[in-house]
Design a protein around this nucleic acid. Structure first.
Lengths: 154, 154
DNA sequence: ATTATAAAGTCAAATAAGGTCAGAGGTGGA
DNA sequence: TCCACCTCTGACCTTATTTGACTTTATAAT
């Protein structure tokens, strides 16, 4: 049984897809009611799955007439990419982050679908098991290497 | 006398066979309960019998809604390059070997040129530096993962 | 202005998975 | 018999999700 968080994610993705300008606006309380969960779980989903790294901007407003707005934004890809890669302080990459990033890079057309699959193949699952504690560091190295390879070819 | 590990293996093989897309998803805790063993024995079975060398990709997720997913990738090829990957005794792959292999796989049209470049980007140079002595083992894991990913999509 | 009401945000604890590793226990062949 | 090589177990670890008490901010009503 998939988690509730995932169901909420899927629902949001779907309605974003359906909206013509890739913007969706909603009430936190209503959504949490629909999915019979506490309101703060909506924040959890937003914080873990609709991050800027994954290409989303979330705005909100409290109080009467409050709302949540999720906007999917395209990136100025190469600049942002280089920035991300150049950010030396970011030395590790979790599996989740990696997946989000790859999905986005494919959506942006930076990588083809098959390339994306290839990347997911090495970045996720038990493939890096041997690397143990260094797994997340290595994953970052691999991601860098692949993005750089691709940049060079363009 | 068949071991419990073998019984679990047989069971998994059977349900993978029965599933129409060769994918099976399950709860570790449930399975271990069915076979009255500790949960970690499931990992033992997966690690010893459902490896990439044997054509399986295993994914998992922890936490609420967690799961194990086993994907079988059919390796029915006369292609001896690919067969080599199925050779369990071959556990490491040097940089030179990797390059040669990728080049041939691209020549044969198994991988596209850009995919090949992506692979070389990951398999060669200092990218795996972090893995130290395990570098060659890890390189083999990566190669297997990529080939399986590609086979999976064909 | 003050107070009431209607949102949404934060954060940490509780819960629900799966992962790792080292050592104990078997088993079969030389 | 003895050794090498499986299997099996349990203690401990890491990660993801769910919940709820408390906080903050906006609007509406007096």
């Amino acid at each position: 049984m998939g988690s509730k968080a995932e169901a909420i994610e899927q629902y949001l993705l779907k309605i974003i897809e359906l909206s013509d300008d890739h913007i969706v606006e909603l009430r936190r309380a209503e959504l949490s009611y629909q999915f019979s969960c506490v309101p703060s779980q909506i924040n959890y989903v937003l914080n873990t799955r609709f991050t800027t790294a994954q290409g989303y901007v979330v705005e909100s407003r409290r109080g009467g007439g409050g709302y949540l707005r999720i906007v999917k934004v395209p990136i100025e890809r190469e600049d942002d990419l280089i920035k991300m890669l150049a950010d030396k302080s970011k030395q590790d990459l979790s599996e989740q982050e990696a997946k989000g990033l790859v999905i986005r890079l494919v959506e942006e057309g930076f990588f083809s679908k098959t390339e994306g699959r290839l990347m997911l193949g090495v970045l996720s699952g038990g493939v890096l098991a041997r690397a143990k504690e260094e797994k997340d560091l290595l994953r970052m190295d691999l991601m860098r290497a692949m993005v750089l390879t691709k940049l060079r070819e363009k």
